[in-house]
Structures are given as C-alpha cells and as structure tokens.
Amino acid sequence: MNSREYIESGILELYVFGKLSEEEKLEVQQMAADNPAIRTEIAAIEQAVINLSHSVSPNISAETYDKIRAELLGDDPKVIAMKSKTNWSQYLGWAASVVILLGAAFMYLQMNDQMNGVINEEIEKSKSEFDKMQKTIVTLEDQNKATQTVLNIIRDKNNTVVTLGGQPVAPTAVAKVYWNKATQTVYIDAEGLPEAPQGMVYQVWALKLDPLTPTSIGLLEKATAATTKMYKVDNTTEAEAFGITLEPEGGSATPTMEQLYTLGKV
C-alpha cells in the first residue's frame, strides 16, 4: 500500500482518536517513522479535532484554573535529601573553626527568623496579586476573543451594511445590520440602542415594503452578547428594510409600531 492509499484508508484519524488496537497503532507508527507525508497528515488531523473540541468548550471558571494550578504546582516543595558523612576523622582539624562558625551562624539564624516573617508576608502578598492578575488575564482574553469576532464580522467584504436610524419614540437610537449574503447570516450591532426596560426585549424584523410585510428574525436577548452587543439573528433572503421594535419578553407575532425604535432601508 502506498502512502496515499494508506492516508485515504482513514486509519490515521482513528490513530489520533485513540481507537486503534495495539497492533494497528504500531503499524501506523512504523509507517509514520518512514514517511513525512503521513506525519504531516497526522498533525493536521490532530489540529482539526483540537480546534473543534476547543470551540465547543464552555469557558472554564477562574476558580477551577486556580484549583488545578494549586494542585499541580502547589504546596509540594521539593525536598533535598542530605547525605550523611561518616568519615569524621578528616574533619577534626576543622573543629575549632566550626565552633566559631556555629556562634556566628547562631546569631545569623536569630536575625534570619525575624527577617523570615517579613519575607513570608511579602511572598503571600505577591502570590495573591499574581492570582488576581491571572484572573484578569483570563477575562481579558475572553473579551479580546469576542472583540476579534466582532471585527471579523464588520470587516467581511461580503456584507451589506444597513444603518437603522432612530424613530420618533427614540430619536437618538441607532443600530446597524451586517447582512452577509454569501454565508447567509445577519448580525445586529445594538450598541446604539438604549437598555431595554425590565420585562421588555428588542425584536428584529425583516420587512418587505410593498405590501408592508414584517417577518421576525430574532430577539436581542441581553445574556447572549453581554459585552459586545453584537447579535446573530436568523437569516433572511429577501429583506428590503430592517426594523427594531421594543416588545414584551418573549417577543410578539407582529411588531408594535408605536414602539418602533429604529428603521432602515437596504
């Protein structure tokens, strides 16, 4: 079997998944050792499934990170074993100086005890500051990722961008629609909408103009995009305009036109 056929057989995927018998595993390793194309293929398969499982992972809490870190690295200082010396005779000549040294060492240790208290306190302080920074970094990384995603949405050249202007009930409100006809996705940037009152929710409508036919394409639930205010809503294929109304929680079947916050034509 040549390497191409071997790769196409699908055995390398199962090798990465850890689902081969001992015998098959050895065979793959032998093939990989002789053949760089197989090694490259294994690495690519591995990368694909690492990315896939990474992306369906919920966030891991900072507490769990701390717990794991403490358990793995934590309170388990390395012990250095002392070797005992048995041949005392050769050290006799040094005895006198040792006595003097001991005196000095005793004094040194006494001072050291006092110092240790201070130093330990400092170490504790640094440790807790370090932990705090770790948590901040995790939060910032999350935010950064969210921001990156938003940037990618905004920068996509395939987007039709529609600005929705404020209406009488909320003249200063503004929202933007990013409509990607290639990937058939619609995102709403809701940064310019006032906070929805308790018990109310913004609902997005795709409108056909003649005759006026609104179709709901989603609710802007606060929890789903707390930091970025960039919401993904349902796809639409034939909108001529978009509107956003304020509706009771859960949304409405038809828009409440008195509560039309923003509107814009494609």
Partner: peptide, 12 residues
C-alpha cells in the same frame, strides 16, 4: 446559550 458564558465566541 446558557451553557456558553459568552455565546459570541462560538459564532464563527
């Protein structure tokens, strides 16, 4: 969505 703290992470 309740399982993913920040749902936007997964949109891509």
């Amino acid at each position: 969505p309740s399982k993913i703290n920040n749902k936007i992470d997964t949109i891509g």
